[in-house]
């Protein structure tokens, strides 16, 4: 028993050591939305970048995410009302994106209210981030 304990401890630390760099490459904010999505829906499976992309361009009334952020999320966007320049949404083009959890939540709250007139679900937020991360 003691031996298996030690062995599994070694095995665990090996997994940890090997998977640590992989974990670091993942987006920590996306991971926290994964936990929230599980809470929200016990049947939650995973996020989907395809669904995120469809969400990005889907219009609700006159607006979609793409109205301001443009369809090409590696390009600069433009505020639909004020015309102000918006830096690219894709982290591959703008590393500051999805790096500050409070900032991400602040903008999801605002923009979901503006476009959808409601809060977004954790599933929608995660799909959306997965999409932005998939654009290289």
């Amino acid at each position: 028993m003691k031996k298996t304990g030690i062995i599994s401890a070694i095995a665990l630390s090996a997994i940890f050591t090997f998977s640590a760099p992989l974990m670091a490459a993942e987006n920590t904010i996306l991971e926290s939305y994964r936990a929230a999505a599980r809470q929200e829906n016990p049947a939650f499976k995973d996020f989907s970048s395809t669904r995120g992309q469809a969400f990005h361009t889907a219009k609700s009334g006159d607006l979609s995410c793409a109205s301001c952020h443009t369809e090409n999320i590696k390009a600069h966007g433009k505020h639909a009302t004020t015309g102000k320049d918006i830096l690219p949404l894709a982290p591959s083009a703008n590393p500051d994106r999805f790096a500050d959890a409070a900032k991400v939540e602040k903008w999801f709250k605002r923009n979901c209210n503006d476009v959808l007139k409601r809060a977004c679900t954790a599933q929608e937020k995660g799909d959306f981030i997965a999409y932005t991360l998939s654009v290289k």
């Binding site: 602040k106 709250k109 605002r110 503006d114």
Partner: peptide
Amino acid sequence: LDQHFGTDAALA
């Protein structure tokens, strides 16, 4: 600010 000229601009 949550209804700032038609936009949600709420702050912490």
